[in-house]
């Protein structure tokens, strides 16, 4: 929690600003709807760390995917992720985005979220507790400091594979590719 050190602010205002004012777009699929409200309300106040829920992806820089991802939701998640401005971080919440979790054999949920959009951090647990969200936020701080939270750069470089995976899982996507994919049939 080096929010107070003026020296760091002057050296890297961009990094510090990213760290201490996460504007979250939370996608409350499945279990997320029950653990996010306690974190942003009185008991576990997330606003202490500058984490505020925000309405549209345009304003956000942290994308919290809470709970299992069904095929129809994946389309909305990719759409929201591509609409977020660039220094953006994603955190998978619960064991279902990691490897399918409780619904590993369901025909309608995707198993590894990492194949479709880059994910910087995971929170394990089937319904993780609000404290684990804060641990994830603090880990994200250290990753930003060390420059490891580079999901969005990976997305830009390897967009071709991501786009192929997405189309393989979802069939045709209505919106044009974000970055020039450059293959013939486009």
């Amino acid at each position: 929690m080096d929010r107070g050190s003026i020296k760091k602010w002057l050296k890297a205002p961009g990094k510090m600003g990213q760290k201490y004012s996460f504007w979250v777009v939370y996608f409350c699929t499945g279990c997320g709807i029950i653990e996010i409200p306690p974190t942003i309300t009185s008991r576990w106040d997330a606003e202490r760390f500058g984490v505020i829920p925000v309405a549209t992806p345009r304003q956000a820089n942290l994308f919290l995917i809470t709970g299992y991802v069904s095929v129809k939701t994946l389309r909305a998640i990719i759409r929201t992720y591509e609409q977020m401005p660039d220094p953006k971080y994603t955190v998978g919440f619960g064991s279902c985005p990691i490897n399918g979790g409780m619904y590993w054999d369901s025909y309608n949920t995707i198993k590894h979220l990492d194949k479709y959009i880059p994910v910087d951090g995971w929170i394990a647990g089937c319904m993780p507790r609000p404290e684990s969200i804060f641990i994830a936020v603090t880990h994200l701080w250290t990753m930003i400091d060390k420059g490891m939270a580079t999901g969005y750069i990976k997305y830009r470089e390897k967009y071709k594979n991501y786009r192929k995976n997405q189309e393989e899982a979802l069939g045709k996507l209505e919106w044009p590719p974000l970055y020039p994919v450059g293959d013939k049939n486009e």
């Binding site: 699929t29 069904s70 129809k72 054999d105 369901s106 309608n108």
Partner: peptide, 22 residues
């Protein structure tokens, strides 16, 4: 349909006690 995971189908693949935590 955004949160459909075919719950009842999954329960047919698990025994009575395995369904209990599900």
């Amino acid at each position: 349909g955004w949160l459909h995971r075919g719950f009842e189908k999954l329960m047919e693949y698990r025994t009575w006690i395995q369904n209990f935590p599900l």
